[in-house]
């Protein structure tokens, strides 16, 4: 166990545990916040930002409790994402009724690809259809897409964060993309490409 060891000056590593965790907050807080915010639709729901802060705190509290047991060679970043993912899923489950509504809503919009008369209005609608499609993705696909394209994790890290195999992480990314591309093909003819 880390705290039993001493460093070269004979000081116990207990001090170092705190220092290393402070370092971890410094290095990873912002990306973990962005990740949780993105999972919660912070850009489209005002409560998203508020909730994200609660979930991030929950994640760091859990991380700190588990920190002494973390193997020194572990990928700390993937480990943090895993904790943040679990906390986020718990929160999403709590709000399932609302998530359901969003999903129905998106289906309606996708089923009625009615381009408006004005290009700008059409574009806004397309973006919102696209967004609805993103928020209707199963959590694992959404998480994998966000980690891959917005958070810059590699597949090994995504797999570790989702507690899955690397193949499954890749499958989540490609299935998610396929769904989004289908929306793109149906709802956004040229404006985005």
């Amino acid at each position: 166990m880390t705290i039993q060891r001493t460093d070269s000056t004979g000081r116990a590593m207990a001090h170092d545990t705190v220092g290393r965790f402070e370092d971890l907050i410094e290095r990873h807080h912002d990306e973990i916040y962005a990740y949780v915010w993105r999972m919660l639709d912070g850009g489209y729901r005002d409560e998203g930002a508020l909730e994200a802060a609660d979930i991030v705190q929950d994640a760091f509290e859990r991380a700190y409790r588990a920190f002494p047991r973390l193997h020194p060679d572990s990928n700390v970043r993937a480990w943090l994402y895993k904790i943040a993912t679990n906390c986020t899923y718990t929160a999403l489950k709590r709000h399932r009724p609302q998530t359901r509504l969003d999903a129905n809503d998106s289906e309606e919009r996708l089923g009625d690809p009615n381009p408006g008369p004005e290009q700008s209005v059409a574009y806004a609608e397309d973006v919102s259809a696209m967004h609805a499609s993103i928020s209707a993705l199963p959590p694992n696909q959404r998480a994998a897409l966000v980690m891959r394209y917005l958070q810059g994790l590699d597949y090994g890290e995504i797999a570790a964060a989702l507690g899955s195999s690397e193949e499954s992480a890749r499958a989540n990314v490609s299935h998610g993309l396929r769904r989004l591309r289908a929306t793109l093909a149906a709802g956004i003819p040229e404006s985005v490409e």
């Binding site: 912002d30 915010w37 993105r38 850009g43 917005l150």
Partner: peptide, 19 residues
């Protein structure tokens, strides 16, 4: 990446507040 970017990015003030 363009598709996924629609999800958005939190504004720096909110991130600072959480930090």
């Amino acid at each position: 990446q363009n598709i996924v970017t629609l999800i958005g990015t939190p504004n720096p003030g909110v991130v600072r507040g959480s930090r």
